[in-house]
Design a protein around this nucleic acid. Structure first.
Length: 293
RNA sequence: GCUGGGGUAGUGAAGCGGUCAAACACUGCAGACUGUAAAUCUGCCGGCUUAUGCCUUCGGGGGUUCGAAUCCCUCCCCCAGCA
């Protein structure tokens, strides 16, 4: 059967939010003795559970999950750190003869791992603070004078600041997928995603994000939750501020989550190595076929 | 039934005689994005295979005017107050 050389080292499952990635990864993990690495920039935060649809205690008891609850809300967590973490996790998992399954909707995190991004200089937070006080125009001026090239994101303050921090250098990346990586994407039709986003929004509120938000605010403060909580929490904060009622919040969340799904689609769309499937079932069949060869 | 307010793009909302296809916001669509990425930013968004171009618009109809979304009459519909 499979020789060790050909044995896939990593299964990667991507797709927009609420497309069924988690369920699929769980299924594959159970069937092939795997462990899951969540590539999600929000579930790395402790306590940010309900609003991010973080894998449940039950699921985590059945299959080992990596990448969850790594830091406290409000703390800095970066793509660089995720990449390091994920790579270590993968070699740990593989060294024990298990299958690594990288799953998530944070495209940057996924790409940083599979294309082995060569990240550039870290930010000097003090300098960054100063840069943040400048206007877009002033930042562009600095870049021009230094001779760095201004990208298409020339109106984007964050990108301009980053360009200055990295002295305009581009980051290295692999131009193709490493051997042994199975990369699949789940991309249901828009109508289906919207439907699932809607259902999940109802579910998340029924599960009590609002009271979770209250608890988190008490523990970490409003700022921390607003900054690192994610879409659902920002909206819950609006309820707590008395700006909207819960029914409005749910609708708002559905809309915002769909917009997020669209951004994810845009990111993943340009990755030509992804094998796309319109539902988890088909993706599952493909992965199984690959793993069984 | 009377009085007052209102009917403008998918929605909200400016405009209140000429420079109005119509500010602005939201939605929607497309895109960018290597150390904040569930973030941040860009373009388009009445129609015309897309343009410093043409066409059609401002509840319906009629009128005043060189010229109306803007003034007048009338009809229809909303909302508030009074009956």
């Amino acid at each position: 059967m499979a020789t060790t050389a050909q044995k896939p080292k990593l299964v990667v499952i991507v797709g927009p939010t609420a497309s069924g990635k988690s369920a699929l990864s769980l299924k594959i993990a159970k069937e092939f003795d795997g462990e899951i690495i969540c590539a999600d920039s929000r579930t790395v935060y402790k306590g940010i559970d309900i609003g991010t649809a973080k894998p449940t205690k039950q699921d985590r008891a059945k299959v080992k999950h990596w990448g969850l609850d790594l830091v406290e809300p409000g703390q800095r967590f970066t793509a660089y750190r995720f990449k390091k973490y994920a790579q270590a996790a993968i070699s740990d998992i593989n060294s024990r003869g298990k299958l690594s399954i990288l799953v998530g909707g944070t495209g940057l995190y996924i790409d940083s791992v599979i294309f082995d991004f060569g990240f550039r200089d870290d930010a000097n937070l003090l300098k960054r603070q100063k840069l943040e006080s400048l206007s877009v125009l002033e930042l562009q001026e600095i870049i021009k004078k230094a001779g760095y090239k201004i990208s298409e994101n020339s109106q984007n303050k964050r990108h301009l600041i980053r360009a200055i921090e990295t002295k305009g250098r581009a980051g290295a990346r692999k131009s193709s997928l490493p051997k042994g990586v199975i990369l699949v994407g789940i991309l249901p039709p828009d109508g289906v995603i919207k439907e699932q986003v809607g259902q999940r929004a109802e579910q998340i509120f029924a599960n009590g994000v609002l009271s979770e938000t209250k608890k988190l605010v008490r523990k970490y403060g409003k700022e921390a939750i607003a900054e690192t909580g994610g879409i659902a929490y920002k909206i819950c904060l609006e309820i707590l501020a008395g700006k909207i009622i819960e029914a409005e919040a749910i609708e708002k969340f559905k809309k915002a989550d769909w917009q997020y799904a669209r951004r994810q689609k845009t990111w993943f769309r340009r990755n030509k190595f992804i094998h796309w499937f319109s539902d988890a079932e088909q993706a599952s069949n493909y992965i199984k076929a690959q793993l069984n060869t």
